[in-house]
Amino acid sequence: PPQTPIRAAMTSIQMLRGDLTSTGDQPSTTLATYFKQCTVDPTQDVRKRLEAHGQAFSQRFGQAVGPHCVVYGRERFSLGVRKYYQVMEAMLKSEEKRLSVQNFSKLLNDSTFHTSLLACALEVVMAAYGVSSFKNGGYNPGGGEAADRDVCFPWILDVFDLAAFDFYKVIESFIKADPTLSKNIIKHLETCENLIMERIAWRTGSPLFELLKQEHEGGAAEQVETPAS
């Protein structure tokens, strides 16, 4: 049968649901162990953060798509949470292998890391549902009717009040940690990445400016530029 946008979206959603059937909406035993091994156990903070983000997401989804669609917003959020846990576990396993450590207390108590990872997981879900186009008007953090009409990237950044620069940081590791992502989804994430690098990260208020300033000052004092810089 001919490929249509609806057929493509249905295939993509089926693949996502299939991939997430074995992943629960709670941390797996392995992930819970990583949490317990932390100097400061992040379990409760993770749970509370997800509750708050879930409410914000469903509410904003309803505002953007229509009040009768809040239930669909909750459904997408639920899939996003499963993907978030699944990818977090894969990332931690990979980091354990690379660094030979099991205590990821600092990373797992970093709220920005969790919010960025969740936002990326939700962007994957949204892309699977066929939201692959981008807003013409660009990023509008203040909201307003034109910006709230749809839920395309970078809508998710506004929902969670997340800096594009921080979202950018998780994209590559996310793709590496999730071998189930389809070519189209990877392409979508790459488009998000390019949009951030070329436009969004350079807007007023971006943390990138302060970081560049710090980097410049540090570099001048040391007179040495390391490859990592």
Binding site: M91, L99, D110, T112, K169, V170, K176, K187, L189
Partner: peptide, 21 residues
């Protein structure tokens, strides 16, 4: 299987990007 360009080196990971060692 896809043409995504990976930029992180083998010794870099999510921990470094969020300033954790």
């Amino acid at each position: 299987s896809h043409d995504y360009h990976f930029g992180l080196e083998d010794h870099e990971g999510i921990s470094e990007l969020f300033d954790c060692d």
